[in-house]
Design a protein around this nucleic acid. Structure first.
Lengths: 307, 307
DNA sequence: GGTTTGTCATGACTGCTGCTCATGTTTTGG
DNA sequence: CCAAAACATGAGCAGCAGTCATGACAAACC
């Protein structure tokens, strides 16, 4: 008769509420759908009440399920706060988090993540390393940054990589562009076009490194600093571009430009946080990574948490 | 790196704080001391900090341990509330809890327990069945009571017994009574004395049923309704009595009377809650039993939870 | 001071249970 | 109406939370 409820169950329930179905919730919790189904069945048997109205999408909560989800929303943050406080006891409150970014579009989610971080770790000095840097990892060694957002996690001694998320790059075209009729863009399709990119070295452009260069395709180029400028150029038929799907969702919904997958299998990219090895276990660095993952999985469409 | 903390740990920590040491805390949780020691070690490894200052009695909390205990005090009641709410969803809020008591001294703890119950289940009609009843279980069948506090759990079809706690009866003597020099009271010691009891049938008096009757001892008798009157009579050398140890702690501390164990092994007694079989799973009845146990283990000296 | 008593720590072992895997059933959406 | 997606279910397994037995240590007690 004693309570079978554990924090694990509350985490599951909150995840199901957030994800809308068992399968996606299971992914976020790094469990199988089966595990959640078993958990739910046990809880429902224990309380003698259904927690979700099945056979409806999105899953709808019964009053009992709602009670438990509310409980989760109340309790889980309290747990997280207490554990942060303990980490502060262990490591001290102070410290600095200077973030180096090599990806222009990252500011979209970096800002809300930094806001949350600032609330939770008010004593940690938070900053973005300004200016563009070809090799942000170098800044870690020079003690000019504490964490770098990088796409390719190159194994390097002294550096640890904490995975953030993976996503697909999409090719962007004017809505009436001839290529927009194709189901996907192949390397050759770029040959006769002008490619619009950020002004960064080629190695940092996933499209060039993984698709065009291997195929020996070398289109005309044009660069600009701002995402919105790239979109504007594409829409006005001055060229085509490749950007992360999540960074242009807003424009696609408004039919400002058209989007197509790149290659038949898509062009997969990922983002990682790089930190110095010996700081990889620092609580506030780990928590920042967790916050970024939370923010991004909630806000960015079409991304997958990795690691 | 993810949180290893579960509600189980919070319950353990709160119990250790309440009990003052691992051994007693383990008893209350129905676990072994070893289990708690292992739990603690794991938590301390996980957080990289000690939670208790060992080698001190009573165990003293470190700041980190204090954080977690505070968390437990915050979270566990929220959990309990939510689970009560779910029980109300399942069974409805209404119902009645009419309590029949055969034990005069029980009112000591019954009142605070009822106060707590009233807070948690405001919709349940709460009452004590007034007047004295030789067979309170009969009241359950007659639907004049919902729960009876009884000492001997006689197996009876249709009745379920929920264990409360066990304790030792103590023999009470005037401070200068000759028997007060003995390490314990034997059956024969009562032969020449006047025995002061509540005015109830002999079968309900543990001393008579378990000690005097088997030994064929039949002392002079005197009865009174009130515990304080029994104490007064004993103190003024009009006789001796046997009462639960927890019910006279107050008087013993003030040296109002002397107390001795009854028989070499003591005279063990216990209290149970009797309810109708088919209501044994009703949430508010079970919760009342849980409240009584909580109140009593916290307030009454020398009792042991049973079941 | 040595013995006793109460308490916590530790290591070996074990049974439970919470998970995965494989598969069946139901629901959804084109 | 069919294919695809999502959920349910049962079997099997591994990890771990617990017990048991014992050791280490401190305080209490002649």
């Amino acid at each position: 008769m004693q309570s079978l409820l554990e924090l694990r169950h509350l985490k599951t329930l909150a995840a199901i509420r957030d994800a809308g179905n068992l399968t996606r919730a299971a992914e976020r919790l790094f469990l199988t759908q089966s595990a959640l189904s078993h958990q739910l069945r046990l809880l429902e048997e224990h309380y003698g009440l259904p927690l979700f109205a099945r056979k409806t999408a999105p899953l709808k909560l019964t009053p009992a399920g709602d009670k438990l989800v509310q409980l989760a929303d109340l309790v889980l943050p309290q747990i997280a706060n207490a554990e942060r406080d303990i980490a502060k006891l262990r490591e001290g409150e102070a410290g600095s988090l200077r973030i180096a970014v090599e990806c222009h579009t990252c500011f979209d989610w970096l800002m809300p993540a930094m806001d949350t971080f600032r609330e939770r770790w008010p004593e940690v000095e938070l900053d973005i390393v300004s200016g563009f840097h070809a090799d942000p990892v170098q800044l870690l060694f020079e003690d000019r940054a504490d964490l770098a957002i990088v796409s390719v996690p190159e194994a390097e001694s002294g550096i640890a990589h904490l995975p953030l998320f993976a996503y697909d790059m999409v090719g962007l075209l004017a809505r009436d562009h001839p290529l927009a009729t194709k189901p996907f863009l192949a390397a050759e399709d770029f040959a006769g076009e002008t490619l619009i990119t950020y002004p960064v070295p080629d190695e940092m452009l996933d499209l060039i490194r993984q698709v065009l260069k291997p195929a020996g395709v070398n289109p005309k180029r044009r660069t600009t600093e701002l995402t919105v400028a790239i979109l504007q150029l594409v829409a006005s038929r001055r060229g085509i571009a490749a950007l992360p799907g999540w960074s242009v969702q807003h424009y696609l919904e408004r039919d400002y430009v058209a989007a197509r997958p790149i290659t038949a299998n898509g062009l997969r990219a990922e983002l990682n946080a790089a930190v110095l090895d010996d700081r990889a276990h620092t609580a506030y660095l780990q928590d920042f990574v967790a916050i970024v993952r939370e923010v991004c999985v909630a806000e960015l469409p079409g991304i997958q948490l990795i690691g």
